[in-house]
């Protein structure tokens, strides 16, 4: 494992910790899209099926279990916690899951490395992860008031895939020119979706202003 990959994983983990911290400490999930969080549960469930079939390392297994556990608990808080669920912006979080999930699944059926259940579901999870942030970005654009924790959460979540992109370039040159089109292109799409958000996040940080996305 190289330093970019590790930095990417740590950024991803930190983003989730910040989100859980926000939910637990402030008992509020304002500005967080339940749609996006549910899509992440689907992403992790379909990607980590290999937990049962293949052992890579202690680190790998632990991180997979942490991502599964935390994403499920975030959804649980937002749907069922009696205080937190009342702060959910249901009326603004209107993006439909299946607009993203169905095309991703069809694409995974068409474009994959190997036609097996595990491989197609893994590919589906890669495609779905690339676009799962869309409901969250739409919700942010509708929110007049984005709190710091939510802003930092989305920033770190975007930064994680950008660091993975650097990791893939590094691996290409250090590991026998390993070519992996599916995650590369999906990761590129995923990072590009954040470009606009990154721009306003950095701008508000430099000018010491409150983050607000133009409608």
């Amino acid at each position: 494992m190289n330093v970019f990959r590790l930095a990417g994983d740590m950024t991803h983990l930190l983003s989730i910790i910040i989100l859980l911290l926000k939910i637990r400490a402030t008992k509020s999930c304002t500005g967080i899209s339940l749609k996006t969080q549910e899509l992440y549960v689907i992403v992790f469930l379909t990607r980590y099926l290999d937990l049962f079939t293949k052992y890579i390392s202690f680190y790998n297994t632990t991180m997979k279990l942490v991502f599964l556990g935390t994403s499920i608990s975030i959804v649980w808080y937002m749907r069922y916690h009696k205080v937190v669920k009342q702060t959910y912006n249901k009326d603004q979080d209107t993006f439909r899951h299946y607009f993203l999930a169905i095309p991703c699944f069809l694409l995974a059926l068409l474009i994959h490395h190997e036609f097996t259940v595990i491989e197609v579901l893994w590919t589906f999870s890669i495609y779905l992860e690339a676009v799962a942030i869309l409901p969250q970005l739409v919700l942010l654009q509708r929110s007049r008031n984005i709190d710091n924790l939510t802003g930092n959460y989305v920033f770190l979540l975007g930064a994680y895939r950008a660091l993975y992109l650097v990791n893939w370039v590094y691996r290409y040159f250090t590991e026998n020119h390993l070519v992996r089109w599916i995650p590369w292109l999906s990761g590129l799409v995923q990072t590009t979706l954040y470009a606009d958000f990154f721009y306003y996040y950095i701008k508000s940080w430099k000018n010491n202003e409150k983050l607000q996305l133009p409608a």
């Binding site: 991502f67 070519v179 089109w181 599916i182």
Partner: peptide
Amino acid sequence: PEEKATKDEL
């Protein structure tokens, strides 16, 4: 080139 299905990432 063939894509290697290395699944060592998260």
